[in-house]
Design a protein around this nucleic acid. Structure first.
Ligand code: MN
Ligand code: MN
Ligand code: ZN
Ligand code: ZN
Lengths: 171, 171
DNA sequence: TCTGCAATTGAGACTCAGTCTCATTTGTTG
DNA sequence: CAACAAATGAGACTGAGTCTCAATTGCAGA
């Protein structure tokens, strides 16, 4: 399926969601969905704002945030923490829940999905009589490339910068 | 071990860390460590600031943040995400790594540690040739109490509303 | 196609957590 | 106890994100 066809499909999908909610498909919303599904993967709100500006489409910060919120509600976009102080977004194509390995040296992100891990989480919740709806796992560390280049795993102060909010895996 | 004795022990521990770094144990730092280890568990920076003010100890916002940073560096305090837009802190007593189940209805936090889960994470990293140093897992959902009260699990898009009624502590 | 009007937009004010600056104060070491 | 580096407080600043409101726009119905 060609790139643009898929993108147009996502616009239709969003249009349907908006219709259901009694909301309108505006040119701004269309342009944003097109941009998100055509070129971005993990991205920041302000980065998207800037991209639109670059393309000569003047869309306000407020509209960008408002549209992202709608996209999250529609399930077409997910808002995730990637170990930084602000959110990242990623489009959800079709299916796949996944979690993230994040290199604290080069910032690269590796996605993974593991059924065993997911199942174990469900078991833990059951044991605690907790009904899970959503989870968020980031593993921070050193990617293979950086390892090969002789980088050392996280100096403590580096961890402070990038691994904020993380808990220690191997003490 | 009585409460106050343990607290004083933590102050000594922090004093040692500061000494090693060529830093000073000030009255403000001492008071903050005492407060954190005596009464808080998961807490916010501004909440701590307010508590100190309540006690008649005037410690500036800057000092609170600076001291928390030092405590994180020393390993005595951990900075965590609990599904809200800002950080929470928790003191680390006895090096127990754990992750969190967070109720999106009442905000309660359940801690857990699971060796199987931790081991599986290491295996995933190995397969991706990724060297992990930290991780951060939050599972959001509905706690047993709220379930019993007939609350319904939040849709993922409601997750960002957690803490909507949180006390305003900033001056 | 035209119209009415609720939904949407943009500009910019605002919030809030967190950081930084710098003049003044304080703890430590000799 | 003096010297002086480290620390503090007040408040300015930052940056992500939210809100307000007058002007605009999409769209359902005539
Ligand atoms: Mn992803
Ligand atoms: Mn905890
Ligand atoms: Zn890397
Ligand atoms: Zn609950």
């Amino acid at each position: 399926m060609p790139h643009t066809v898929r993108t147009e499909k996502e616009i239709t999908r969003f249009a349907g969601f908006l219709q259901d909610q009694g909301l309108k498909l505006t040119t701004e919303r269309t342009a944003l969905v097109r941009e998100i599904f055509a070129t971005h993967y993990h991205f920041e709100a302000d980065e998207l704002l800037f991209k639109m500006k670059e393309k000569g489409l003047k869309i306000s910060r407020a509209t960008v945030y408002r549209t992202l919120e709608l996209l999250v509600k529609s399930g077409m976009v997910r808002r995730v923490h990637l170990g930084e102080d602000h959110y990242h977004y990623e489009h959800v194509t079709g299916n796949s829940h996944h979690d993230h390995l994040i290199c604290t040296t080069c910032g690269s992100v590796i996605e993974f999905h593991d059924d065993v891990l997911e199942q174990r989480q469900r078991e833990i919740c059951e044991r605690k009589r907790f009904t899970p709806t959503f989870h968020n796992l980031q593993i921070l560390g050193l990617c293979a490339d950086c390892r090969k280049k002789g980088e050392l795993p996280d100096a403590p102060d580096r961890v402070k910068m990038i691994g904020a909010g993380a808990t220690q895996l191997r003490k």
